[in-house]
């Protein structure tokens, strides 16, 4: 008992303190979601009422296709996650394994491009996509495929950080051997590299899934149709009013929308921890 106190007590104290810190705002979100007044419950720590009106609104109000939004979010975020990992890992593989001119310059440029304050570039993206809409209405402004393309635009750069170190850490003997076997670089990538990198690829996919799931700055410009909105955009209508905000459904919708993320997150916890570090640990 004495030893336990000495060695583990501080660990539990830190854990409990930080857990409280982590949970406190979330608790307020939860009680706000059970309040029917529509505003954030900020100062009363004991819920005044337990009302399911907000949840009811999300599922039973015909003007709020919440489940369709969830489906859209899962679909878009899922596609972005998979495709961006393919694009990102291909580049990371090439940067790490292939020798070519301008390799260092290339990766430096790629990293720097990510640092551009993109807030103004959104205007340009908007103009490009509204022009695309003129000749290809299926993939232009206002469509999910159009938004997907824009998200993928950043795919090559964003994940390079996490992937690069990991790729470096995979021993190159394996692909040397494959080379001797007569495999081409593309074959080495698919047959040797991808299976080896599977855990870290899963993590990168998950991170970009979460990022895409919560993105609303671009999405709200693209997904105007009620039926094509994602959760992040759809829920905006409750709080984006000029002067009136209805926090209840927003809180309820946010909580429900974060459940799939939490489930994936917790079930992949081991992967995530090893994957995140693998990216930065060299060999």
């Amino acid at each position: 008992m004495n030893k336990w106190l000495k060695q583990d007590l501080w660990r539990h104290l830190v854990g409990v303190a930080i857990c409280l810190f982590a949970l406190f705002p979330l608790y307020l979100v939860i009680i706000s979601s059970f309040s029917s007044s529509g505003s954030l419950q900020l100062s009363s720590f004991i819920p005044k009422e337990i009302s399911f009106a907000n949840y009811n609104k999300l599922f039973n109000d015909p003007t709020i296709p919440y489940l369709i939004w969830v489906k859209n979010s899962l679909l878009i975020a899922g596609s972005v996650a998979v495709m961006s990992v393919v694009i990102g890992s291909a580049s990371a593989f090439a940067f790490s394994r292939l020798r070519f001119k301008g390799r260092k310059l290339g990766i430096q440029l790629l990293l720097l491009v990510q640092m551009f304050p993109a807030i103004l570039a959104i205007s340009a993206v908007y103009v490009i996509m509204e022009r695309v809409y003129k000749f290809a209405p299926e993939i232009g402004l206002g469509t999910q495929p159009g938004l997907l393309l824009v998200y993928l635009g950043g795919a090559m750069g964003v994940n390079i950080w996490l992937l690069k170190g990991f790729v470096d850490s995979i021993p190159s003997e394996l692909d040397e051997a494959a080379k001797i076997d007569g495999a081409s670089e593309v074959q080495t990538f698919w047959l040797i590299f991808v299976p080896l990198a599977a855990p870290v690829l899963a993590v990168v996919a998950l991170l970009s899934f979460i990022g895409t799931f919560n993105e609303f700055i671009l999405a709200r410009l693209f997904l105007v149709d009620m039926e094509s909105r994602t959760v992040a955009v759809g829920l905006q209508q409750f709080i984006g009013g000029q002067y009136s905000q209805n926090w209840g459904p927003f809180a309820a919708g946010s909580i429900l929308a974060s459940i799939p993320i939490v489930i994936i997150f917790l079930s992949l916890q081991k992967y995530i921890v090893s994957g995140l570090t693998a990216g930065s640990v060299k060999g």
Binding site: I18, A22, L23, L26, V29, S258, V262, Q269
Partner: peptide, 8 residues
């Protein structure tokens, strides 16, 4: 501890 990360 990962909850803050998962919440929008």
């Amino acid at each position: 501890l990962v909850l803050p990360y998962a919440m929008p």
